[in-house]
Design a protein around this nucleic acid. Structure first.
Lengths: 326, 326
DNA sequence: CCATAAATGCTCTGATTGAGCATATCGAGG
DNA sequence: CCTCGATATGCTCAATCAGAGCATTTATGG
């Protein structure tokens, strides 16, 4: 059996309050073929083949076809994970090396390409307005059922433990970084059918499906990307890849909140980034924000030489204060 | 050009004070061929092909051939990175998916296989006895030269900035997690020739080489593994994968120190893991340690449901106290 | 001029970290 | 039996930090 290697990209930006990813439309049965194959069109992450002769490195290969397909010249790029389950794509053994790219949002002229709100696909990850309704309404019940349908009590309890840890049930805290674990639980419990199991799969899923689907296992790739990015926010200055050269602290906070999926205390956020000397004032102000004009800042590169792990300092490193009951 | 996919494994354990990795001997020119190819023998990470028909997932494929080749049944396993530079292996386009496996040390009977101290290959990463001598003696001078040989002052300053950040020069702090960055700098500066550039490459490098070499880019893979593991120590209970079911806190500290490459304050270490309820007492003691008997502990699984990111809490999150001069 | 909306400044308190001093307990040697 | 050396384990102190909330400044729109 022949092995085919492809490269997929999660290209992320933040517009307004939304974390966005770039998607394209591809035909269902043969995502490798061109639009001619006549199948149904589904939304997918941009992906392309590795050219083993031309592309000196995997990174360069990805940059090449992203440029060719969308006109975007990628900046920050990082390898995420290589997916290669045998039944991923029936027919051939497809290995797909997934990448995460961060960018300021740019217009894309490619046909079929669009920036979509990431939480459209992973709605349970957005806690900015509090616990998302569907966690209590559908996810937890669904997962409880999944844990309980098996006869073996050992399996049930192992499954349920995973649920509590991943979704913060039963007094466990919500860990914003366990994005992939959550996705995989939902997948195992068949609450988020991947596209191959839902031939029609476009738009919000019928009946049981949660969130919108993407082709193949692309939603899993998106989850991997979000997990990586959330983790990295805290110890590498990646936010700045998604901000213009100068920006207000409010804007910066907005971007962080969009990615972390939670609200932050404004004054503390400001104190942290200033005290950590992650940014410096430009001296300019930005007016017209509806209130007092905001000073603008820029990333202070020198921080890289001053602190070991410069990042934005999100909450949650703290031990929960002694719980009432053990 | 045909693409070949292989799987390599960094199998780690800690014996005594040493973090070890499992290595095998392979013939130089054709690492894929069997021992018959007659070339020189070099040390390499264990690796094997992906069987696209048999192996349902990449993980399972790796577990399969590790079992077949070494008899080891792997436990904790995590994908690290996929290496695929074109000139990685002259001749074919080789894609190698690298994995990190953690284990308690076990005897391996496979011929040519051996447990080696990881710091044999990356000696500058071990700060347990203070700054390793070769950092000041050879690395920093070598990198300074590398930064300065170019004419373009922009290049020089960018190179030097990378050096200061990666190696903690010029007042910058040493960041134990930037393992890969350090390796890549040394590689670019040709201070750690990879095996293909050193046909004889076994044993401590002659003249300029730092540390022992491994076949191909396997030393880079080992660096990637160490970086990942050091990072994860702090927020996932991975140490326990490398400890027996019950252990003393001193032993646990020893393992953490071996991996993190630094010494920890004993009383604080103990306070942290106990206070974080990462472990619980077994009630037993272990005698014969040369002093007061040590109580033994076991991993407290429930911590996963109590804290968002349970790990061992290494130093370094704190801001450096106001430096004498800005 | 007044109300509203942001942006920014500051304070308070409990936790948490980094260091160091002090005590307990075992084995070996006299 | 007593002392010493080696660990293990307990506890305290001060500096720093995180989480919350109150207060002030400066725009814009009646």
């Amino acid at each position: 059996m022949r092995v085919v290697v492809g490269l997929s990209a999660v290209i992320m930006a933040v517009t307004g309050q939304s974390p966005r990813i770039l998607t394209v439309r591809r035909s269902t049965p043969d995502p490798w073929g061109s639009r001619a194959s006549g199948g149904e069109l589904v939304e997918a992450l941009p992906f392309g083949p590795l050219d083993p002769v031309v592309d000196r490195t995997l990174d360069l290969g990805l940059r090449r076809w992203v440029r060719e397909q969308t006109g975007i010249e990628l900046g920050y790029l990082e390898q995420l994970y290589t997916f290669g389950d045998r039944d991923r794509d029936p027919g051939a053994r497809v290995l797909s090396v997934a990448y995460l790219a961060l960018t300021r949002q740019v217009a894309v002229e490619a046909p079929g390409a669009a920036w979509r709100d990431l939480y459209t696909y992973l709605p349970w990850e957005d806690w900015r307005e509090g616990v998302p309704g569907l966690v209590g309404a559908r996810i937890v019940p669904g997962l409880r059922r999944w844990a309980q349908v098996v006869d073996d009590p050992g399996v049930t309890s192992r499954r349920w433990e995973r649920v509590t840890i991943a979704f913060g049930v039963d007094g466990a805290p919500w860990d914003r970084n366990r994005v992939l674990e959550r996705y995989e639980l939902l997948y195992e419990a068949r609450l988020v059918p991947e596209a191959r199991s839902v031939p029609g799969g476009q738009g919000p899923d019928p009946a049981e499906g949660l969130g919108w689907t993407l082709a193949l296992d692309h939603r899993r790739i998106a989850a991997t990307a979000l997990e990586r990015l959330r983790g990295k926010l805290g110890y590498r200055p990646v936010v700045f890849e998604m901000l213009p050269a100068t920006f207000t602290l409010s804007r910066m906070q907005q971007v962080v909140e969009a990615l972390a999926g939670l609200r932050l205390h404004k004054q503390n956020f400001r104190r942290l980034v200033e005290q950590d000397r992650l940014v410096e004032r430009t001296g300019e102000v930005e007016t017209g924000t509806g209130g007092r004009p905001a000073e603008t800042f820029r990333f202070r590169r020198e921080v890289l030489r001053e602190r070991p792990a410069p990042g934005v300092g999100l909450p949650g490193r703290r031990r929960p204060r002694s719980p009432a009951s053990g």
